[in-house]
């Protein structure tokens, strides 16, 4: 080890708690992380409070006042049916967050299981799982999701969540497997075998805690892509219920009015998507920075 590396690690020898505290201090001082926290917090609040926080009824039609410019009465203007864009943007955060978080949780749990099994047992189990993973990865996420949606006919939100979760599974499985392959070579795994531990114990008690940091990082990164995917599917008009105040479908519905100078009804939902995705990404980036020191 070089002296510099020793300089970096030696103190860890005596005071691990200090390192953990320094990690949080690092996060607290990182402007990127704080901005991310703020953006995500804002949208989570919007999703939790829902129509309670919205100044107007997001579904109330008012065709006489359609396509109104942003004003004090309608902060983000009104849409093609005279609905309050600001209220719809606030309410729209719920479905995208629910689907994205749900899908990422499902994908992370399944992917972690699959990756653990594949990486630990190796051999034929690994070959079979990995070839299937390769085949699924040969199609872009959106394409797989579209294929499943076509097959399932007007899927509900729950089904869309499941589809995206399944699509993410192989991606996460591959990351987890790579970590497990390295981890399983370490002697503590041999030591566990040498005290007659069985495979489930080794997988979940010995290996899992050690691959958790990359799994957490992968979760946050994946969450960003889940938002990406959910928004894109609803923009393409194949996601859940086309009439709900979904950011993606709001953009799709009002995009054609941009040419007439009516920009607010598509810009604000688009900006909502961007801020949420970027917020999650900044959070993920902060965690990566803090964990990799």
């Amino acid at each position: 080890m070089t002296d510099a590396a020793v300089a970096g690690t030696r103190r860890g020898g005596a005071e691990l708690g200090v390192v953990r505290r320094e990690r949080w201090a690092l996060l607290r001082r990182s402007p990127a992380f704080l901005i991310g926290l703020g953006l995500v917090g804002l949208w989570v609040a919007g999703a939790v409070l829902g129509s309670w926080a919205a100044p107007k009824d997001p579904q109330a039609l008012d065709p006489i006042h359609k396509h109104q410019h942003p004003s004090l009465a309608h902060w983000f203007g009104t849409d093609v049916l005279g609905r309050d864009v600001f209220s719809r943007v606030i309410v729209g955060s719920r479905s995208i967050l629910l689907i994205a978080v749900g899908a990422t949780v499902i994908g992370t749990i399944l992917g972690t299981m699959l990756g653990l099994v594949s990486g630990y047992f190796k051999g034929i189990v690994d070959e079979v799982i990995m070839r299937l993973v390769d085949a699924l990865l040969a199609m872009p996420v959106i394409v797989v999701a579209l294929l499943a949606i076509a097959a399932l006919d007007h899927p509900s939100n729950v089904v869309v969540t499941l589809i995206i979760g399944f699509v993410f599974t192989p991606i996460i499985a591959r990351t987890v497997r790579a970590s497990v392959l390295g981890e399983a070579e370490l002697d503590y795994v041999a030591a566990a075998k040498l005290r007659t531990e069985r495979a489930p114990h080794i997988l979940f008690v010995e290996l899992l805690p050690n691959i958790l940091p990359p799994v957490i990082v992968e979760f946050t990164v994946r969450l960003g892509y889940a938002i990406f995917a959910v928004a894109t599917l609803s923009f393409l008009g194949v996601g859940a219920s086309p009439d709900s105040p979904d950011w993606g479908s709001q953009v799709a519905t009002h995009y054609s009015f941009i040419n007439q100078g009516i920009w607010w009804s598509s810009l604000f939902p688009a900006a909502a998507i961007a801020t949420l995705a970027v917020g999650v990404n900044l959070l993920a980036d902060g965690l990566v920075e803090a964990f990799e020191r």
Binding site: D187, Y188, R195, E206
Partner: peptide, 25 residues
């Protein structure tokens, strides 16, 4: 290992080269 009794497994043990790798952190 699978063919050995717990007593036999306990009878033959090892101290590894690198304790960082040998102890679950």
């Amino acid at each position: 290992l699978g063919d050995r009794s717990a007593a036999d497994v306990g009878a033959v043990q090892i101290v590894f080269q690198n304790p960082d790798s040998a102890l679950n952190r």
